[in-house]
């Protein structure tokens, strides 16, 4: 792979976190390049979610730092966007308002946020769903709405924490197909947590194996369309 063809988007450097004397992350470093999808694969309790909490700024690490395009964002929220396993759509808001919420948090008016969200919905397979309430959506639609919201929160880096694990097998397969196409088309840069090896192999450019608070292994992936097509994949 031509390492230099990528600009380095996100750098996690030597992050260490311990809770009550127990080391959860022991000097984790990783890089995410523009348009790349890197999976963090590992069993539950390996520290993946803690790492996400550090990268999103919710948790300040004991040591180490997080850089976004070379800028130190350690412990600062609002720079990268985070999607958890649950879609966490707000039941009290219509789909368009849920998706546009990140813009409102940054000071946009309700109408502005809604307009931008509505324009984005077709990209996420939600054309015509703007006026619905979350409770009226199917499981797959809810995940896509949450992804659209995550995308609006930050187009730079998306942290996805097992976003498809709660879906049934058929919906999951559909979502994988849709997500691969969308990630390429929009050039999304994604850190993706999963404990499903097949899912990691299917979606990722690279897989990092996380074990006991360390990056224990590195697996490059050749996904369909990746070989010789690296530049088209998102740079």
């Amino acid at each position: 792979m031509e390492e230099k063809a990528y600009s380095s988007l996100l750098n996690v450097e030597d992050v260490t976190v311990s809770f009550e004397g127990r080391a959860v992350l022991r000097g984790v470093s990783l890089q995410l390049r523009d348009g790349e999808l890197v999976s963090l694969l590992g069993a539950s309790g390996g520290g993946k979610t803690t790492l996400f909490n550090v990268v999103s700024g919710l948790l300040v690490p004991d040591a180490g730092r997080v850089l976004l395009r070379g800028r130190d964002i350690t412990g600062a929220t609002g720079h990268v966007s985070y999607m958890m396993q649950k879609d966490l759509l707000l039941e009290s808001m219509r789909v368009a308002d849920n998706v546009g919420l990140p813009l409102r948090l940054r000071g946009a008016s309700k109408a502005q946020a809604r307009a931008e969200a509505v324009a984005l919905l077709p990209d996420f397979g939600l054309a015509g769903a703007a006026q619905l309430w979350p409770s009226q959506l199917s499981g797959g639609m809810r995940q896509r709405a949450a992804l659209a919201r995550t995308y609006l929160a930050s187009r730079d880096v998306l942290l996805l924490d097992e976003p498809f694990s709660a879906l049934d097998a058929f919906t999951k397969a559909d979502m994988h197909r849709w997500f691969m196409a969308t990630q390429r088309r929009l050039g999304l840069s994604v850190l993706f947590v999963t404990h499903d090896i097949d899912e990691a192999a299917l979606l990722s450019d690279r897989i990092l194996v996380v074990k006991e608070g360390l990056i224990a292994g590195y697996v490059p992936v050749t996904r369909p369309g990746n070989a010789g097509d690296a530049s088209a994949a998102g740079v």
């Binding site: 999103s56 700024g57 919710l58 929220t77 609002g78 720079h79 966007s81 985070y82 958890m84 649950k86 966490l88 707000l90 919420l101 990140p102 948090l105 940054r106 929160a153």
Partner: peptide, 11 residues
Amino acid sequence: DEVNLMRAMGA
């Protein structure tokens, strides 16, 4: 988690 997500989005 809803509160955490909002905070992560900078709320």
